[in-house]
Design a protein around this nucleic acid. Sequence first.
DNA 1: CTAGGATCCTGTCAGC
DNA 2: TGCTGACAGGATCCTA
Length: 282
Amino acid sequence: MPELPEVETIRRGLEKFVLGKRIADVKILCEKSFRGDAHFVIGQKIKRFDRKGKALLIQLENGFWMMVHLRMTGQLIFIGDDKFAAGHPDGGFTEEMPGRHTRVYFEFEDGTHLYFNDQRKFGFIAVMDELSLATDPFLTKLAPEPWYMKPDDFWAMLQRHKSAPIKAVILDQKNIAGVGNIYADEGCFYAKILPWRKVATLSREDADLLLEGLCKVMQASIDSGGSTMKDYVKADGTKGNYLEKFSQVFRREGLECRRCGAEIQKTRTAGRGTHYCPGCQE
DNA sequence: CTAGGATCCTGTCAGC
DNA sequence: TGCTGACAGGATCCTA
């Protein structure tokens, strides 16, 4: 579920609360959720948190890395004097940790913990050396994030997928990085494009507007995630919800369009639930 | 090469 | 109540 803005929110939170901590132990409760050798991680200090698209990268002082991908239902929860959670919106601090969905957790030297929870087990943490990171198939094929893509590049990319629905194209991380189901729908709404339109039917203006929309909705969400994080830091279990704050179509089926007043609809495109306004998208 | 569908896994919810 | 199928903020694998 977490898309780029969620992962960036996590990255910032971890940078604030976990950077520099030394990992005393790693508990693996689900083998599938942890790839590679935990021995390269135990005893190491966390040197840096980075992010590429939806992938979180953690650099250790010995030069090894951990790549975390949350996929659909992953979340990271830090519990110490401060508490911080982000990712999949379920659970949070209501459960005892480790909980029913905890797959892996880290114990730091100072007694604090970082939990990786993942209901559906699609996500993972992978221990990687420099070479495996540099040659990782997902990372090497990952396209630029929207704000690093020029309108010309975006347009050129679209020309390679003329017969696909536009939503399917922007969901593919090899085409543009970080867009998921929420921002695909929100971006199409911004550009007034129906998500199932074949790319061939889009004008250059449509494409420019869509790229602009993707940049804007994702940046707004990152900014909002920042304020959500503050609520979490208060450790009161508050569920910040940036969707409520500025979603125009996502999970608003049956409600009025904020732009034209028509009723937001939900259908299926590219195998995913798809939200749109029949009044102002075409 | 692209496009589309099945698949990984667990949980919840609507409908019978 | 119990069963069944659909669906879920993702990405890969397989087939055509």
